[in-house]
C-alpha cells in the first residue's frame, strides 16, 4: 500500500481522529493535576527550608519560584513552557524537570515494560492452559496462585523477595541499580501481580469462546487443535484482555512507585513520591503529564490493535461509538 493510500485509509483517519480527541483530555488532565497540587495544603518553600526557616527566606524562595503569582498565571506560564520544551525547574532539586524525567524515565520504562511482558506471557499461557483443562489440578493451583499474587500488597511482596532471594540466597543485589540483574526482582513483583489478572480474564474468556458455534464448526472442519485454540479461540478471547492491559498502564506506573521505593530502584516513581511529599509542583506535574500521555497512547494502541486481532471490527463503528 502506498503512503498516500495509507494516509487516506480508514485506519489512518481513525488514528488521527483519536489523537485529536486526546488533546482536550490532555488539557483537562493538566488542569486537574495543576489544581490538585496547588490547592493541597503545604507550601513548597516552607517544606524545602524546614521548620526553622525565616519568613524572609520563605518569601525569597516563593518569589524565585513564581509562587507569588496568581494561580491562572502560573498555569498559563507552565503550559506555554510545556509546549516550548521548558517543563519548569524542580523546586526540590533545582534542576530542569524534563532533564530529571529524561534521566529517570529509561529505568521506569524498563521496569514497566519487562513487567508487562512477563505478565502477558505468563498470564495468557496460564489462562489458556486453565481454560483447556478446567477444574484440573493445574487449573485450581493457577487460580490459587493468581489469588495469592493479587492479594499480597506489592510492598510486602517486594520485601519478601528481597529477604529470600537477595539476602538469604544472595542471588540478587538488595537495591538500587547495579546492572540488568537489579531488574529481576522488581520486574517479578510487578509482573506477577498483573499476570494474575490477565490469567483470570483470559481463562474466563477462553472458556466462553470455546463453547461458541464457530469453534465447534472449526473442529468439525478438521482443523488442528492448535489452530482452533490459537487462531479461533485465543484471538477472539484476547479483545477484553487487550483492553484490560491498556487500562492497566497507569496502574503500572502506580505499581512502579511502590516497587521502586521498596527496591530503592532509581526510576521515576520513587522521584514522584518525593516530589509529592515536598510539593514540588513542576516535577509532579511533569511526571503526571508523562503518565497521562502514556495512558492516552496505550489506549490508542489498544483501539488500533482490536482491528488487527479481529478484522471483523469495523473502525467506522468504533468512531461512531
Amino acid at each position: 500500500m502506498k503512503i498516500r493510500e495509507y494516509i487516506e485509509s480508514k485506519r489512518a483517519r481513525f488514528i488521527v481522529t483519536r489523537i485529536v480527541k486526546s488533546i482536550p483530555v490532555f488539557f483537562l488532565a493538566s488542569i486537574i493535576i495543576f489544581l490538585i497540587m496547588h490547592l493541597s495544603p503545604g507550601d513548597p518553600a516552607e517544606i524545602m527550608l524546614g521548620a526553622g526557616a525565616t519568613e524572609e527566606a520563605i518569601e525569597s524562595i516563593q518569589q524565585r519560584l513564581g509562587l507569588d503569582q496568581p494561580l491562572y498565571r502560573q498555569y498559563l506560564n507552565y503550559m506555554s513552557g510545556v509546549f516550548q520544551g521548558d517543563w519548569g525547574v524542580s523546586i526540590r532539586y533545582n534542576q530542569p524537570v524534563l532533564e530529571l524525567i529524561r534521566t529517570r524515565m529509561p529505568l521506569t520504562l524498563l521496569l514497566m515494560g519487562s513487567g508487562l511482558i512477563i505478565s502477558v506471557i505468563m498470564g495468557i499461557t496460564m489462562g489458556v492452559l486453565g481454560a483447556l483443562n478446567p477444574n484440573s489440578i493445574f487449573d485450581y493451583s493457577s487460580t490459587v496462585m493468581a489469588l495469592f499474587w493479587r492479594s499480597i500488597p506489592s510492598f510486602w511482596l517486594g520485601i519478601l523477595f528481597l529477604y529470600v532471594f537477595a539476602l538469604e540466597f544472595g542471588w540478587f543485589p538488595i537495591g538500587g541499580w547495579q546492572g540488568p540483574i537489579s531488574l529481576v526482582l522488581p520486574m517479578m513483583v510487578i509482573g506477577l501481580r498483573l499476570q494474575a489478572i490477565i490469567a483470570r480474564l483470559t481463562r474466563s474468556q477462553m472458556l466462553d469462546v470455546l463453547t461458541k458455534d464457530y469453534i465447534k464448526s472449526a473442529k468439525t472442519k478438521g482443523l488442528k487443535r492448535k489452530a482452533v485454540i490459537i487462531k479461533h479461540g485465543l484471538r477472539n478471547a484476547l479483545i477484553p484482555v487487550v483492553t484490560v492491559i491498556a487500562l492497566r498502564v497507569p496502574w503500572l506506573f502506580g505499581g512502579a512507585v511502590i516497587t521502586e521505593t521498596v527496591f530503592a530502584y532509581p526510576g521515576m516513581g520513587s522521584m514522584l513520591v518525593r516530589g509529592v511529599l515536598s510539593r514540588d509542583f513542576p516535577l509532579v506535574q511533569g511526571i503526571v503529564l508523562v503518565i497521562c500521555i502514556s495512558a492516552i497512547i496505550a489506549n490508542l494502541i489498544a483501539d488500533v490493535s482490536y482491528t488487527y486481532i479481529d478484522p471483523r471490527i469495523d473502525i467506522d463503528s468504533q468512531r461512531k461509538g
Partner: peptide, 18 residues
Amino acid sequence: LRVFGEETTLQMSLQQGE
C-alpha cells in the same frame, strides 16, 4: 551517599555489605 525510601531495604543492604 545513597537514598533508601524503605528502611527495611536499608537494613538488608547493610547486612549484605552493599
